[in-house]
Amino acid sequence: MSSVSNLKQHTETELLEGLRAGDEGCARQLVEAHAGRMLAVARRFLDDEDAAQDAVQDAFASAFAAIDRFRGDSALGTWLHSILVNAALKRVRADRRRHEISLDDLMPVFDGNGCRLEPLQGRILPVDQLLERQEVRDGVRKAIACLPEGYRAVVLLRDIEGYNTDEAAAALSISVGALKVRLHRGRAALKRLLEPLLEEGMS
């Protein structure tokens, strides 16, 4: 394998050519450039650090195997990201049975007549104002991490990764109906967990 390629940073086109030719330096550059971000995303989906690292490893393995089919119509980073999400989802699916934590305590509450008992009473602060507070950003990260993996995956796919309902249902091998229930419950739980941070005059 070429030792020269270890020394210089390749452009994306050169990197691709090198990868297709099986150049080890290019492979290392690809891994070092993208593994950090991929690991961070994998940790978002998976509670277990080993599972997150395994997902990154799976993703790179799939990427190396499929590098000839990468057409370059998106950036390499974007392509790797989507492979990583799929690799992480496989592990979420595999782990599904272990995570049957009930979200019931975090669901909205209604009285006997179906009228909402809403704990929040004041004005909800605008998003940009909330994001200025470090404690809010930390709180949101923590709240997402608190969701059971099966629900968190749905929220991440729909609200963060930008999948539509059908795509997200297919990616998780569940029905559209089941996906919608999980998405709504996941979001409702997130809202409940974030309540202490959202209101004007709180904190």
């Binding site: 978002r44 909800i124 998003v127 994001l131 950003r137 997402i144 809202k191 974030l194």
Partner: peptide, 10 residues
């Protein structure tokens, strides 16, 4: 707001 915060933080 919760959905928007999740998206922004990620």
């Amino acid at each position: 707001t919760s959905v928007a915060l999740g998206r922004a933080v990620c």
